[in-house]
Computed example of a mutant assay.
Amino acid sequence: MKKSYLFLLMLLFAFLISCNGDDTMTSPETNVTAVQTGKITGKVMSQNGTKPIGGASVFVFDDKYKIYHTNSDASGNFTLEAPSGNQTIYIQTGNGSNFRTEISTSVKANETVSLDVTQTKLTQVAKIAYVKGNYDKIEDIIQTLGYTATEITHADLANITTLAQYDIVFLNCGSRKYAQTAALYPLIETNLAIFVANGGSIYASDWDVSYLVGGTDNTNNCSLAGGFVPDAKLCSKNIGSSGIVASTISNPALATAMGFNTLNIDYDLGSWQKIINYDANYWDVLVKDTSTNDPLMIRTNQFSATGLPTTTIGNAPNTAFTTVCITLPGNIQISVSVPTVAVPYLVALGATVGPCSGATNSGYIYYTTFHNHATGNIGNAGTILQYVILNL
């Protein structure tokens, strides 16, 4: 009787295998229909259509919030694999909070859609301000890209209500003019700390490092009074000499976006700021002196300080976008801004709210030891400064 029962079981097992067609279990995933995709091509351009933009994030989501992502090359060109159907294509620089564009298009399986350059212009979302300097005119570079910036004064920097209206502030070399407005500087430095700690970004060039670390019109020693960046994080002295400095772009993302990794920077005046020491865990070196490895251009989004008030900065109240960190295949992380309604779905897939690196709410601080004046002999440094503008 036992042998007959065993024989029947063997016949039943053989029948089940024959119905399957092979001797492996069928995974539910094998019944999932593969996503049909096509390709989208285009060229990312500045707002006025004059400047191709390298290093921009181009991405789209399918109906299950899987991201399809690529970057524009140094000439602004991109090819994006995208799920078929009606899609919204996102183009962004930085983490997408200050410059971004959305494009609605239809993607057909196994076909290529070419976007026109009128569609792929990068739109300014940020409110940008600058303080006029004696040597620099970053506002000219901003305008050559088709973007707008508002001139503000030391009195505006000293008024947190006014300062908080902006997302980005550019401090041109020679703008500090300490002798005329020294009484305002403790308040200005406190306000800049509040601004950055709450997500605002600033750029300072050459002598205007004194806004960051203290001193008068420039810095001639370490650990000077004033400033808001801790003295242990940065020291710069005005001991740099004039001449051409062979330089290397040490940040891979910047080098890829530029399409080159070496350049000559013309220090055409005496008494340039020279970075004496810096905290390598706090600052990311973007450009360095090829012969000495001295940093010439640095940035951080690590700023934090206790006791500073929480303040809404810039365009934040008017946006329905949130910055998130998404991990791509190969464990590559990207910071992008997405519609806030999509955030819960992306978090469920492993994304985290906020940028991928840096202090939780910190904006960026960029500092260059060299000038940014648009009409001066800055060569390829001008292209790098365009990158700075778009990635703050």
Score class of each variant (00 low, 15 high):
138 I>Q: 03
185 Y>W: 06
362 S>Y: 05
348 A>H: 07
285 V>D: 00
318 N>C: 07
239 I>G: 05
165 Q>E: 14
174 G>F: 07
179 A>E: 14
377 N>I: 10
221 N>G: 13
55 G>N: 08
157 L>N: 04
2 K>N: 13
41 T>C: 10
353 V>L: 06
342 A>S: 13
338 V>K: 02
57 S>T: 12
282 Y>M: 02
387 Y>R: 06
171 L>T: 02
373 H>N: 14
191 N>A: 06
276 I>Y: 02
368 T>P: 00
166 Y>R: 04
319 T>E: 06
59 F>S: 06
283 W>I: 01
136 D>Y: 05
201 S>C: 07
203 Y>F: 14
37 T>C: 13
165 Q>D: 09
40 I>L: 11
324 V>N: 03
237 K>A: 08
295 P>G: 10
29 E>P: 00
241 S>T: 15
181 T>A: 08
374 A>Y: 14
172 N>Y: 03
211 Y>K: 04
363 G>S: 05
222 C>K: 00
58 V>W: 03
141 I>F: 02
20 N>G: 11
10 M>Q: 13
185 Y>N: 01
96 G>D: 02
264 N>D: 15
281 N>W: 04
310 T>M: 07
266 D>E: 09
389 I>H: 02
34 A>E: 11
21 G>F: 03
30 T>E: 15
233 K>F: 11
50 T>S: 14
70 T>K: 01
370 F>W: 03
265 I>M: 08
357 S>Q: 10
334 I>V: 14
5 Y>N: 12
52 P>C: 11
12 L>Q: 12
160 I>P: 00
285 V>L: 04
347 V>Y: 05
187 L>G: 01
28 P>V: 14
291 S>I: 08
167 D>E: 14
7 F>S: 15
173 C>V: 11
74 A>N: 13
37 T>I: 02
61 F>W: 03
142 I>M: 03
272 W>C: 06
330 G>L: 05
351 A>D: 10
243 G>Y: 11
281 N>D: 13
326 I>L: 08
265 I>H: 01
160 I>F: 02
198 N>H: 07
323 T>F: 01
42 G>F: 09
258 M>H: 02
285 V>P: 00
244 I>G: 04
100 R>N: 12
247 S>E: 01
375 T>G: 09
115 L>Y: 04
122 L>V: 09
195 F>K: 00
351 A>Y: 07
187 L>V: 15
207 W>Y: 14
31 N>T: 15
180 Q>L: 11
206 D>N: 14
33 T>S: 15
292 T>N: 06
185 Y>H: 06
90 Y>Q: 03
382 G>Y: 09
267 Y>A: 11
381 A>V: 11
